[in-house]
Simulated scan of single mutants.
Amino acid sequence: MTVRERLLTAATELIAERGWGAVSTRVLAERAGVGPGVVHYHFASLPALLAEAAVGALRTAVSGLRDVLASAATPRAGLDAVLAALDSPDGQELFTETFLAATRDDTIRAAVGEVLAEFRRGLAEWLAGFDVPDPERTAAVLAAAVDGLLLHRALDPGLSAAGVVPVLERVLR
């Protein structure tokens, strides 16, 4: 793993563990096993590093959801699979922190918006394959529901796929 990759990995871990605002250059460098000056050698600033790490993790997660959808035989199976994948606590705090950071930073907001738009486009194409009416709007509502579930799980870890899928399935009808 390169130094840059170690820094990005350390950043995603620390954002999830401590929160965006509690990640310092010193703590990040220590986690990555490098000197603090190395952080600024590889990245223009600590906020730029945190943004790249968080948006990259979000992009990877969305890509994984597309793979999950591609293997689903029905819309219900797709909902089950996506929400089951989101039942895992991995990344929960990171995504919550990233969404919160996006409310305060235009660059992060734009990058997160691109990732979410990409997810909605893929979801709409997948829904169209099942003749779901108005797949673009349906995808927008389902994506917003998934985003909301991620945020709400920070407050209510009991909010699981088992309780949510039947409700969202009604949206697909």
Rank of each mutant, 00 (worst) to 15 (best):
R18Y: 00
G21H: 10
S24E: 01
S24V: 11
L28P: 07
A32H: 07
V34A: 13
V34K: 13
G35H: 14
G35T: 15
P36T: 13
G37Q: 09
V39A: 10
Y41H: 15
Y41S: 07
H42I: 11
F43Q: 02
F43W: 12
F43M: 07
F43G: 02
A44Y: 06
L46I: 12
A51L: 05
E52S: 15
A53R: 02
A54H: 01
V55H: 06
G56H: 12
G56V: 15
G56K: 11
T60A: 15
S63G: 04
S63I: 01
V68T: 15
S71T: 06
A72H: 06
A72E: 03
A72I: 00
A73L: 00
A77M: 00
A77N: 03
L79F: 11
L83V: 01
A84W: 13
L86E: 08
S88H: 11
P89F: 09
D90A: 12
E93G: 10
L94D: 07
L94C: 06
T96E: 14
F99W: 01
R104Y: 15
R104V: 02
D105T: 02
D105A: 11
T107N: 08
T107M: 08
I108H: 05
I108N: 09
R109V: 06
V112Y: 09
G113P: 06
E114P: 00
V115G: 03
V115R: 00
L116Q: 11
A117I: 09
F119C: 04
L123N: 01
W126A: 01
W126Q: 11
W126L: 04
V132W: 08
P133I: 01
P135R: 09
R137A: 08
A139L: 10
L142H: 06
A143N: 09
L150H: 02
